[in-house]
Design a protein around this nucleic acid. Structure first.
Ligand SMILES: [Mn+2]
Ligand SMILES: [Mn+2]
Ligand SMILES: [Zn+2]
Ligand SMILES: [Zn+2]
Lengths: 139, 139
DNA sequence: TTAAAAATGCAACAGTGTTGCAATACAGGT
DNA sequence: ACCTGTATTGCAACACTGTTGCATTTTTAA
C-alpha cells in the first residue's frame, strides 16, 4: 500500500509545480501513510535503513508545509510534529496531545466560533488549540 | 515600586515553605513587575548588571512554577515565557501572541464552554489556547 | 545533449534547556 | 552568635532541535 501513497505523493508534489525529487516523494508518501502527527526524529527512524540526510528532511518538510501539502504542529515539548493535509485536515483544526505517551492526533473540528474578546486595538489572525489528556491506550 | 514587589515576592515564597533566597526574591519580584509574559533570555537581560547565573534562573523559574507562584507558556517559537500568578491569572486562561513582535499577553478568560468531542476512550485533562494576531502596536 | 536552476549532503553552528558536582547559603537548634 | 544538615547555587559540560554556508548532484526545460 505504500506504493499507492508514493503515487499520490508524486501527484501532489507535481501539482504544486515543485521538482519531483526522490526525498520529497519518500517523505510525503510516509506522512500520507501515518495516522498521527510525528516528529522529525520519528520520521528519520522510519527510514532507518534507507539513508536520509537530516538537513534534507528538515528542508523537505518545510517545503511541504510552505506548499500546503502537510502542516506542522507545535507542542509543549518544543518539538514540531508533521502531518499530511488529507481531507478533513486542510482547514483549521484543533489537536490532542497525550500527556503520557506524547501522541498527537488531529481533531476534526475547531470549536472556535465563540467570541473571545481581545484587548482594544488587537487584530485577530488565527487560533491554536491543543487539548491535553490521556489517549485510548494511556487512559 | 520595585521594593514593593520584593516584599510581596518574599511573602509569597515564605508562604510556600521554600527557602527565601536572594535569587528567588529578585526573580519573582521582577516577574511581578512585568505586565506580559517574558522569556528566560528577557529576564536575564533585565538583570544585565547584577549577576544572575542562567542555570540558577532556569531552576528558580521551575521552582516558582512548581509552587504555583508563576506559570509558563509554550509558544510556536519553542521558547518558554513566564508570568506571575496574580489575581486574574491563577485559573486557566488563554493567551495572545503577536505574530510580528512576539509579545505574549495573558487573556483573562478561557472560553471553555466549547464542546470539543474527543475520540472514544480519550480522557480530557486541560486545554491550551493561543490566539495569534497583531498587538496594538503592530496592528 | 546541454546548461541553468534547484535541491542535496556534509560540516559547522546557534539557541534553549539539562545534568553532575563541588562550593555556598539558608534555617533551625544549641 | 555558632554549628550543622540540607537546599540552593555556580560552573562546566552536555543534549537536543533546528539552521546556515557551500560545494556537489539532480532535475527540468530548452
Ligand atoms: Mn493537525
Ligand atoms: Mn498566562
Ligand atoms: Zn497516550
Ligand atoms: Zn506586536
Amino acid at each position: 500500500m505504500l506504493s499507492n501513497f508514493r503515487v499520490t505523493a508524486e501527484e501532489m508534489i507535481r501539482s504544486h509545480g515543485g521538482r519531483v525529487t526522490d526525498s520529497r516523494k519518500r517523505i510525503l508518501a510516509l506522512l500520507l501513510s501515518e495516522k498521527n502527527a510525528i516528529t522529525h526524529r520519528e520520521i528519520e527512524s522510519r527510514f532507518s535503513n534507507d539513508q536520509l540526510d537530516r538537513v534534507t528532511l528538515y528542508r523537505v518538510l518545510q517545503w511541504l508545509v510552505d506548499n500546503g501539502l502537510i502542516h506542522k504542529i507545535t507542542s509543549d515539548d518544543h518539538v514540531w510534529r508533521y502531518h499530511a493535509n488529507q481531507d478533513a485536515y486542510r482547514h483549521q483544526h484543533a489537536h490532542f496531545k497525550c500527556t503520557k505517551c506524547a501522541k498527537v492526533v488531529c481533531l476534526e473540528d475547531m470549536p472556535s466560533d465563540r467570541k473571545l474578546s481581545l484587548p482594544a486595538g488587537y487584530r485577530f489572525q488565527t487560533i491554536e488549540l491543543t487539548v491535553k489528556g490521556l489517549c485510548e491506550h494511556c487512559a
